[in-house]
Write a protein that binds this DNA or RNA. Structure first.
Lengths: 205, 205
DNA sequence: TAGATTGTTAATCGATTAACAATC
DNA sequence: TAGATTGTTAATCGATTAACAATC
């Protein structure tokens, strides 16, 4: 299986590569990319090897080819679609963050249990009742979900999404979800990150 | 140095432990806690060993003692203070998320370059001009910062914070920051998480 | 005592870094 | 050619898991 870290880095290299292209560069050495991405150059070379790009000794990597390979590796033929559950502050922030920014990733539907939000549009994304999740998810061809509800409701919401056919979840609620095999989950616990930085700032010279 | 992962887990155990206490339990086995935290029981025992808690063979861990140890380990004597730069959607979401929720962590000041936001209060947190950062940070005794500005501005903002005395940064902008030694940084790249889940959902059986 | 769980050490696993011959 | 960078292998490092004697 593909190592998690590799994907994270390749996502990073994508940005670095398109920044360099935007600056009019056509080629770059692994150590240049490494510097911009904040990793070691051996990491970069490993990563590029992993996705099957070849550089040339002493003249580096063709950035345009690199970009193509990274896209091909990271993204599907047709854009992946997310839905999001919970249109509180966090949900809206995520929507705002993504709105019209990512070609290959789309948030196609929002769900909330508050009836007042039904049919309202947030950052280009329509809000539906959570009761209609199954229908909307099927109709829109959505395969991925974002959970942005309070901790107590997260597990139940995950269950609803999975029953509706969702196979991958980004969970912003600060609880570890217990899900069956074959479901991909990424837990993003904002409070934990702040705690962690506080801890290391105190405890590291 | 303390392993990063250990801190993440201990932060998780804290929640599990207080959930169990809330349910009226006084003791728990490592495997019970492991199940709730979604890890192996050997991980839990390692973690508890690490923070110096002792259980009793065959009767598990005293939850109240555990809670005390975890707090003592994770939190400082006086609450750590954060400031946040960028009061757009993301910044507001973070503020809303934290407002009045975390005893030992406080967001004491917000900064933005938009003069219209000056002196407005968001979720209990006053917004200042970024030009006053140095003064406010010193006066409020803030040692940590959250960056929630667009990618292009993140590096410059980080520099300002560090000059003002900040020693730890949680960076939500999708760029790796280049900072001097001794500064703690945690990069939280929301777009990357969504990409990662999309990738693994496609590529894992 | 018998059975189960703890504390801790050893074994495994994976990821990072170093090294270097091949290549430009 | 000489010097630098690549692709790839080997060495290192750290984190996870397994194992088991000691303990309750």
């Amino acid at each position: 299986m593909t190592p998690q870290k590799t994907i994270e880095r390749i996502s990073l290299y994508r940005r670095v590569v398109s920044d360099l292209l935007a600056k009019g560069k056509n080629r770059a050495y692994s150590h240049e990319i490494a510097k911009l991405a904040g990793v070691k150059s051996s990491q970069v070379r490993h990563g590029f090897m992993f996705i099957g790009t070849n550089g040339k000794a002493n003249s580096g990597y063709d950035l345009r080819e690199l970009q193509g390979r990274i896209e091909g590796f990271l993204t599907a033929d047709k854009p992946d679609s997310y839905c999001i559950v919970g249109i509180g502050n966090l949900g809206r922030a995520v929507l705002a963050f993504f709105h019209a920014r990512h070609k290959n990733l789309e948030i196609k539907a929002a769900f909330d249990k508050d009836p007042a939000l039904k049919n309202r549009v947030f950052h280009g994304c329509r809000c539906y009742s959570i009761d209609d999740a199954k229908e909307v998810i099927r109709k829109e061809g959505i395969s991925l979900g974002i959970i942005a509800v309070p901790a107590e409701q997260a597990q139940a919401v995950a269950q609803i999404l999975i029953e509706a056919g969702i196979r991958g979840i980004v969970n912003f609620a600060p609880v570890p979800l217990k899900l069956g095999q074959g479901i991909v989950v990424e837990n993003v616990d904002l409070a934990m990150y702040l705690e962690k930085v506080a801890f290391f700032t105190r405890n590291v010279s």
